[in-house]
Design a protein around this nucleic acid. Structure first.
Lengths: 191, 191
DNA sequence: CTCCGACTGTCAACGTCGTTGACAGTAGGA
DNA sequence: TCCTACTGTCAACGACGTTGACAGTCGGAG
């Protein structure tokens, strides 16, 4: 509803920005980038679509400013090497049903946009692959780190994008005990 | 896909359909679903945008009718169990630089569309997970099969969507010898 | 105090998108 | 010959992201 405010006091820019950002975060994480319109964000925030663009530059920039990849693996990455696989798989599995998992799916699907894809790639490189490279011993540390990331992101894809029923239904200890050895094949140095 | 019945048909109809389908396959695989407009497909095919819709129902149906996931793993899935991991990883790595890999990325990003996501999920379930389930021995065969698929699709994501430089640059034997043991941790029965 | 410039918000419009319906041309069967 | 079915064209619709002009409102300078 766009009835004019009964009290014509001017609102602070920061408050409106915040309302827009919150509405955008909500709608983007629910519906994804393409299916969320600037006009619907503006309506949810009680603002005008033109104002949304003026404040954030473009829909793409608004997406990047509001959708943030939760650092789900930050803590797990600090576990001792022998526990690392279990911690990483556990962190991934525990994302089932959370908003962070939906956000990952949304980001992955929006990665066709150049800026979004670059931003996502950077987050994975800096937040996941590089920390792994620093800790792995033995040959091919960089390739092994990239492949460990592929294993974890493949699991997140199965959960978030494809909705693999077997993986969504399985008990957490089962998934961890089955998948962790596969990560350990890359984490533990090859004799 | 399905030609009109051998009833009276104007000669150029099938040819026009074919030209549209070819232009669509080309543009979709190059630019993805969202960035390819029906009007650009029509222009590339020398046809009218309205005709494209009349022949294929909608842009989404045209996408599904023309973009097909190449059965890249069909042959590898028939390898003997001890060779399975090597064959599967080899098949994935050999997709580097091919159109089939681009198509996978395009499909993955378009999986926000309900029909596309469902179609992709079905292809992975029927073409990859179920064949694996039938061959795996030991406990949790279904979960292990889903996780093997996650490993392979995670690798394809890294190559097609994120463009992981380490994985794109690595020699094929390196990737195979490093990643195959990780798949074997799920393929070979647990004692 | 008034006046001014900066800021906040609104509105209409542009060009593009997917899609629809009406319409013209044409070929084959009656 | 007319009739019908099909192929292709055209203009238009509503929705989209984005832009520019414009109005209301405030803080501070004179």
């Amino acid at each position: 509803m766009q009835l004019p405010e009964s009290s014509p006091f001017q609102e602070s820019s920061a408050a409106t920005r915040k309302r827009i950002a919150e509405a955008a975060a909500q709608l983007f994480s629910e519906q994804g980038f393409e299916k969320t319109s600037v006009r619907s964000i503006a309506a949810a925030a009680g603002a005008d679509a033109a104002l949304v663009i003026r404040y954030f530059g473009s829909k793409e920039d608004l997406f990047l400013a509001t959708i943030q990849l939760h650092r789900a693996f930050e803590q797990a990455l600090q576990a001792p090497l022998p526990d690392l696989a279990v911690q990483l798989v556990g962190a991934a599995v525990q994302m089932r049903g959370t908003r962070a998992l939906r956000v990952y799916g949304v980001l992955m699907r929006a990665s066709g946009n150049k800026k979004v894809g670059h931003s996502l790639g950077e987050a994975i490189e800096d937040g996941m692959i590089q920390p792994l490279v620093k800790r792995l011993q033995g040959a091919d540390a960089r390739v092994r780190s990239s492949l460990i990331a592929a294993q974890l992101l493949g699991l997140l894809d199965a959960l978030a994008l494809r909705g693999d029923e077997a993986l969504l239904a399985a008990a957490e200890p089962t998934l961890v005990s089955v998948y962790a050895p596969a990560l350990n094949a890359l984490i533990l140095p090859v004799p």
